[in-house]
Structures are given as C-alpha cells and as structure tokens.
C-alpha cells in the first residue's frame, strides 16, 4: 500500500514529463532530446526560488524557463535547419552550464525551506499530509491534462497535429509549420520543466544530473500507457501517458522491492523496456510475413 501511494505521488509528477514527451514523440513525430536538460532546468529554477522563499513562483518560473528551452530547440530545428535530434542535443548540452549556474553548485537542498504544497497544509491542518501532497499534485496534473486535451481540439492544436503527420501538406495549406513546431516544443518542455520543478520540491533537492535519462523515462511511460490503452485518439493518448507514468513508477518500485535489481540497474531496465516495446511492430510484421511464407510453402 505504501509502495502504491508513493508510486502514485511520483507517477503523477512524472506524468507531466510523460505528457511533454508524448507531444513531441507522438504528436510532432520528433524525438526531442532537450528533455534531459529542461527537466533539470525546471528542478534548478524551482529549487533556487524555493530557497529564496517563493515556491509557487519557482513552479511558474520552471514553466517559463522550460518553454524558453523548448523554443530554442524549435528555433534550431526550423529556422536554423539543424537536424531535430542534434538540435535537442545542443540545447540539452548547453543547458548543463545554465543549470549549474542557476544553482551555483552541483546540487541544492530544500530541507527546511518552503514548498508549494505547504499552503494547503495550513488550510487543512488535520488532514494527512502525504494525502494532501498527493491531492495537490493530482489537481495540478488533472488541470494540465484537461487543458492539453482542450488545446489539441482547437484549430491551432489541429495544425500542430497535422504538422507532425504530413508536413508537406501543411506547408501547402497556409499553416506556418515553423510556428507550429516551435509552439509544440515550447509546451512540451514547459511541461517537462514543471515536472522537474515539482519533483525538486517534493523530493527536497535538485541535482544537476537529475535530468539524465529522463527522455527514456518519458518514453517508457508513454509506451506503457499505449500498451494498455492502444493508440486510438489523441485524448486517450494524453490520458494513457499519465496512467503509464504512474504504472512505470509502480513497476520500478516493485522491481526494487524484490531486491533483484539494485537502484543502479534502473536505467538499463528502463532502456530495455522501451527498446523491447518499440520493436513490437517490427516483430509483429516479421511474424506475419513468416506465416505467409509458411502458408505459401504448404500450398506449393
């Protein structure tokens, strides 16, 4: 039960990361490697401002900084014509310096400093604190997911979806594909940074390496969600990314509980999960073709 509760708390925060990855990877069809840098950026900004006594401002700043990082990658991809993967790597790599400068140290501790959820503690002094914390995070997560669902139902959202689907067509149809891409990358990285910002405050510290491997965590969540819900609509896709994130945390927690895996093995484990699930379509196709060949041989 305790494992489930903490997986839920973590999963809902990382869900914003998963949503960001979903937007770039599934909607725009571009794997965006900025994520590792923008997650840490959010954590750094949020931690530093919390230390200064402004936890809410910290989250807001994380969102804005993440959006800025995303638009840098967007600019590099579109106007500068740099390959999307390289563009992401460039921003991510540059962000390392930015992050360490913001924190002024490799890590920042928040022990004894104010956090965003403490305002709610004051309102409901008798309630269980862990529950309240989870409720706070859940409300943020639900609000953002709902906003995204609505956004992608607007004309502009549709333009972003079309850009990821058939760029040639979109360019010939009066939509500015560059604007669509830059906007989507900004939104995605704003979400990722907010995820980092929340994690820093609930976890009580920010580390300059906090974001390393986050792209894989995001992908794993998206893919786990898709395994369960399928890939039917964008609305379902967004919801399944959230659920996928919580499940991913649960799987990790259970794996650690069994003591088969050490905490160091987690990154490899995640990478393997993502690798295996991403090759499922290819394997399915190969099996289907094998069947056809066998059938042909039988009939011959």
């Amino acid at each position: 039960m305790e494992i489930a509760a903490s997986a839920l708390l973590l999963g809902l925060q990382y869900a914003l990361l998963a949503l960001g990855v979903y937007i770039t990877f599934r909607v725009l069809n571009i794997p965006d490697l900025t994520v590792d840098g923008s997650f840490t950026l959010g954590a750094a900004v949020s931690a530093v401002l919390s230390v200064a006594g402004h936890p809410f401002l910290g989250l807001l700043a994380a969102i804005l900084c993440g959006a800025a990082a995303g638009s840098v990658t967007g600019f590099l991809q579109t106007k500068a014509g740099i390959h999307p993967i390289l563009a992401g790597i460039l921003t991510m790599s540059g962000l390392y310096t930015v992050n360490i400068t913001i924190m002024d140290a490799p890590n920042v501790s928040l022990i004894g400093k104010p956090r965003f959820y403490e305002a709610v503690y004051a309102l409901l002094p008798n309630a269980d604190k862990d529950v309240l914390k989870t409720v706070c995070v859940a409300v943020i997560c639900a609000g953002i997911t709902a906003a995204l669902i609505l956004f992608f139902k607007t004309v502009f959202g549709l333009c972003i979806r079309a850009t990821g689907n058939n760029e040639d067509m979109v360019r010939a149809s009066s939509i500015n594909t560059n604007a669509a891409k830059i906007t989507a990358l900004s939104i995605a990285n704003a979400l990722v940074a907010l995820s980092g910002g929340l994690i820093a405050q609930t976890g009580g510290f920010a580390d300059v390496n906090a974001g390393s491997g986050m792209i894989v965590v995001g992908l794993a969540s998206v893919i786990i969600g898709e395994v369960i819900f399928g890939r039917r609509s964008l609305t379902l896709g967004l919801l399944s990314a959230v659920v996928g994130s919580v499940l991913y945390r649960l799987i990790i927690a259970l794996a650690l509980e069994t003591n088969i895996f050490s905490a160091n093995a987690l990154k490899l484990l995640s990478a393997v999960i993502v690798g295996i699930t991403l090759c499922v379509p290819a394997v399915r196709k190969a099996i289907a073709e094998q069947k056809i060949r066998k059938g042909a041989r039988k009939n011959a």
């Binding site: 549709l158 979806r161 079309a162 689907n165 058939n166 939509i175």
Partner: peptide, 18 residues
C-alpha cells in the same frame, strides 16, 4: 500529399477551413 493520413476526414476539412 494533400491530406494528413492519421487525421479524420472531418479534421482534414477543418484544417483547410481554418
């Protein structure tokens, strides 16, 4: 070339109507 294959007929028209 002229349409987005993963979007519905309706969504494609909406895109043009935009």
């Amino acid at each position: 070339k002229g349409t987005a294959p993963d979007l519905t007929v309706e969504e494609n028209l909406a895109l043009a109507y935009a």
